[in-house]
């Protein structure tokens, strides 16, 4: 069987690349760390990969705004290659800073002109916060097929409040089942802070594009691959794997079947 190949893209300030690659390895894929300069300089090509992963971090220091400088670079320098990658039916995941990059480059939620329709802005608390959250999954996305309805993952960000340009964008997201994760309480009910850790509109934590192949989310599935990463594993019985692993397995399984 051909190995599924993941391009874990790197630039100045990328920092969750190793654990993202580890998660993909656990899911059966092979990852390569690829610096953006090598793609722009054509030393490496996106054509060699089935999955493109934007991991967490602080690309270019999150200067100006989180993910902004990297998103700008992608649009200006790799726009065509990215469009082709998406058009070939391949997969993209953006986690935390990766989600911010996908949103700010217009890849999510996606429209004809790659215009930015949504944003992730400074948390209502005004602070960076690291805490675990419950997420309720919904919508149509290949990455979240058959995962449990409620999963538990950590967030660690200062700019994760999801907002939309106007209500028509929100309606479209709903109509197309593009809202994939919502923050909730332990029983899956909507909650206030800190259940919703950043003040996101309608508790939105992750969205997909119209095809369901590009997933962006603020929480970190790669930080909950094994049970010992759970903050209370000391009290858990009969848990075999972390809640985040299923997402990576889905991506890899999809590639095996379709690409």
């Amino acid at each position: 069987m051909r190995k599924v190949k993941v391009c874990v893209i790197r630039t100045a300030g990328t920092n969750c690349d190793k654990e993202t690659a580890f998660a993909f390895a656990k899911a059966g894929a092979e990852s390569e760390f690829v610096h953006i300069n090598d793609l722009i300089g054509e030393k490496k090509s996106l054509a060699d990969y089935q999955i493109l992963a934007f991991s967490g971090g602080f690309s270019y220091g999150d200067d100006i705004a989180s993910g902004k400088v990297f998103a700008n670079e992608l649009k200006c320098k790799l726009g065509e290659e990215l469009r082709q990658f998406v058009n070939e039916g391949k997969l993209i995941i953006g986690i935390c800073n990766g989600f911010q990059i996908l949103v700010k480059s217009g890849l999510l939620p996606g429209n004809a002109n790659s215009e930015q329709d949504t944003s992730l802005i400074i948390n209502d608390s005004g602070k960076f916060e690291d805490r675990w959250v419950y997420l309720k999954s919904s919508g149509k996305c290949i990455w979240t097929k058959n995962i449990p309805q409620i999963i538990y993952l950590p967030v660690a960000h200062g700019e994760g409040k999801f907002i939309v340009k106007d209500n028509s964008i929100l309606n479209k997201l709903k109509k197309n089942s593009q809202i994939i994760f919502k923050y909730c309480d332990a029983r899956g009910k909507p909650g206030s802070y800190p259940d919703n850790p950043n003040g996101s509109l309608e508790d939105i934590a992750g969205i997909t594009d119209a095809t369901g192949r590009i997933l962006g989310l603020m929480p970190h599935p790669e930080r909950h691959i094994e049970i010992h990463q759970h903050p209370r594993w000391f009290s858990l019985k009969n848990k075999k794997q972390g809640d985040g692993l299923g997402i990576f397995k889905n991506g890899v399984a999809y590639c095996r079947k379709h690409l």
Partner: peptide, 8 residues
């Protein structure tokens, strides 16, 4: 306020 879980 510190990311105490990065690197996994």
């Amino acid at each position: 306020r510190y990311d105490h879980e990065v690197q996994g």
